[in-house]
Write a protein that binds this DNA or RNA. Structure first.
Lengths: 192, 192
DNA sequence: ATTCGACCCTAGCACCGCTAGACAACCGAG
DNA sequence: CTCGGTTGTCTAGCGGTGCTAGGGTCGAAT
């Protein structure tokens, strides 16, 4: 049995390598540069090996997205716990969100921009995604205000942050006033 | 001279045909289906003809985007002029924006999601883009509130709408509560 | 009528995601 | 210890992509 176990371990290790390499390549040169050929070459296997781990490129993107969601949840909770009071917490959360998007553009794209074949906002949504949303909700439910469902508020707040993140990075918004825009958003949306 | 003029006219007409066909194909089957081969076949010319009008696929996307920006500006002003009072005007504007994004997904993508090679938020930004932004600013500057620059407010409001539009269409947000989310956003961001 | 230039098409390049089928290496049974 | 069979990997190739070089045709101007 130990032989099979070793093989399984090696297989899992190689799968991690694939995901890590895809992510690295995407962060370095963008997702367009992540081709199955290049990816295969970097992990020093032939292309078909990729398809023994994933159905296709889409699933690889999905795997990177899940990894990113877990990291994002951690980052959100860290930012929230480092601030005093609901208002400051939400401000810190918003800044941390945009910071994450800016520092990990490829991961952010895998999560929210590209098709990774993942289900969102449903029962069969993968746990990391649900948890990342929960991390936002934890802080945002403190400033939701009366008569509004916290889930709905979180969705709206998140969408606003997402808009800022994507439009800024796509060059649609000038990067200079990023700070004031976040302040404005938090100041108006959060009810203290 | 009249021969040259006729040729120029025919050339311009064909260029319009290319853009219209690209847009149509994109709305019907998505931008992935807009390949130079398919596009060439539909306009009943060979591929290289496309390249005598545009540098490449990117520029075709850009042309569709410019067309869309002009239409969007018209739609925004129409929605604004049909409502009484600043608050109702902004609500109508927001609904019209999301409606435009939902009804013309391919055009919306060309504008804000894909790379059409256009400059945004700069001096050399094409006029239609500037004007679409101006159309938003006209209504939003009425509800900006004190101590906030209307341009900054418009950018923030727009980003929030963009987030709602893209996340909803990408299946990241459940479509059911789209209405309440817009209400919440307008209610909190707009200062009456 | 002839030359010349503008125009368009055929054919092809390098790349893409993905897969069929050949081959080698290794495991377990006799 | 040998031998079948399974498991795993690779080479090669399919149909597609954006884009372009080069040849040929056709009409305008001399």
């Amino acid at each position: 049995m130990s032989v099979q176990e070793r093989k399984q371990r090696e297989r899992a290790e190689r799968e991690r390598l694939i995901v890590a390499t895809a992510r690295e390549l995407a962060e370095q040169q963008g997702w367009d540069a992540v081709t199955t050929r290049r990816l295969a070459e970097r992990i020093e296997y032939s292309q078909p090996v990729l398809y023994s781990h994933f159905r296709g490129k889409r699933e690889i993107i999905g795997a990177v997205a899940l990894q990113g969601a877990a990291e994002m949840a951690v980052a959100m909770r860290a930012a929230a716990s480092g601030a005093d009071g609901p208002r400051a917490r939400v401000a810190a959360l918003a800044r941390a969100y945009l910071d994450f998007a800016e520092r990990n553009p490829a991961v952010y794209d895998a999560l929210f921009q590209l098709d990774g074949g993942l289900a969102f906002a449903q029962e069969d949504t993968p746990e990391p995604l649900k948890d990342a949303f929960a991390a936002l909700l934890e802080s945002l439910s403190e400033v939701t205000g009366d008569g509004v469902e916290p889930g709905l508020f979180t969705e709206t707040f998140w969408a606003a942050l997402h808009g800022l993140a994507t439009l800024t990075r796509a060059g649609r918004l000038p990067p200079e006033d990023a700070g004031p825009r976040v302040e404005l958003l938090v100041g108006r949306l959060a009810v203290v």
